[in-house]
Design a protein around this nucleic acid. Sequence first.
RNA 1: GCCCCCAUCGUCUAGAGGCCUAGGACGCCACCCUUUCAAGGUGGAGAUCACCGGUUCGAAUCCGGUUGGGGGCACCA
Length: 425
Amino acid sequence: MTIRCRIAPSPTGPLHIGTARTALFNFLFARHVGGTFVLRLEDTDVARSTVEFERDILDGLHWLGLEWDEGPEVAGLPALGPYGPYRQMQRLPLYQEAAERLLSEDRAYHCYCTPDELAADRQAQEAAHQAPHYVGRCARLSPVERRAREAEGRRPVIRFRVGEGKVAFDDIVRGHVEISTEALGGDLIIVRSDGTPLYHFVVVVDDAMMAITHVIRGEDHLSNTPKHILLFRALGAEVPDFAHLPLILNPDRTKMSKRMGQTAIADYIAQGYIQEAMVNFLALLGWASGTEEELFTLDELIARFDLSRVHQGGAVFDRERLEWLDGQWIRRLSADDLVDRMAPFLAADLALLRATGAEVREPSEGDLQALVPLVQERMPVLGAIGSLVDFIFLESVTVDPELLVPKRWDAPTTLEGLTAARKVI
RNA sequence: GCCCCCAUCGUCUAGAGGCCUAGGACGCCACCCUUUCAAGGUGGAGAUCACCGGUUCGAAUCCGGUUGGGGGCACCA
């Protein structure tokens, strides 16, 4: 049986650092074992999904070099793989059919509770210091009761019966995990009243239908895994193996959030972090080779990656380390490559200066080549190029005199030196 | 509140019972190199391995508890 894993981003926001890391680990695992890496777009949250976010996510994955073997059609290119469609909104009939099946086998039922009723339940539970859960008001409705609610105009959701007992599984990175169904929050909604399916349901239907063998995802899904296992079983599908990755953390050790810093890959690309460094950095968040090497190309990572070496504790996103890695990889670029990559950053910076009214000379190809030895060893990120060399392209420059005085020199000595230098030049 | 997970320098981490006087890297400090800034080199500070108890001749490593932290509990994903 071939190993199949997937990344299933939701286009409700730009490509997040955490999603990128999860994608990377899935990719590395698949490539290491010669398996298949699938991309699936989870766009069932129609209200929040946009094509712009979808574009951003796909671009980001491409930029990272994480090519998928199967995935949806994009920008005129056809879908890849025999398990399509790979966009969930195009799979609606499949979910509907699966839901019908669960309904007909009484593994699921229609629930007519209103949002108000549910909110009241929750409030009461909170007051009683209980975990929020569905009370099961509609779990055993008679046909007559159902008809009465239909007559009121209520549109039902579909709930899955979680049943009783414990659900246990052996997580590849966490080991044995056991959770009681009582902790699952009651029977869960799998289809909204408008007929669209919910995450926990579609993720299982798709993983089952796409023959996913290994689900590698963030630790935030660990407590949800029993729901998924129950659903796999109810659907008569084989339960895949799970590997829950440690979370990427803010400096205060909470789950990485926009509030505490940049979380979008696109932001890092815009600042001039290079792909090699980002891949290397992300790989080292929760994984280590076990040797003292720490500079790895994507191919080297593929060769060494091993899920059993993934950490259990969360990892703080350390920008300084990212920056150091970026400098390391910039220094390893060939001159031509560096020219290609830094040119847009320099152009953008010069355009900015021009917009302020400064007279700016256009850099020639020769200029750029000549810049390489000047900047390659002192750029932490490509975006720093402007601040390093923009004066070269300016017709007039004003410099803070303070900056001209070297350490342990004074102003008169400096003036003397500069005057002498000018004479020579 | 309930459930689950986690715990080695500030940070990323090595560590699979004796190789540990706990190693490497980032960051920090000093010096060298350099008439700038970096890069590079050398060295330094920095961890009673969260705590308590147990198992063992021997525990950072195994077990139990405590504490602390995090995550999950939606008609979000």
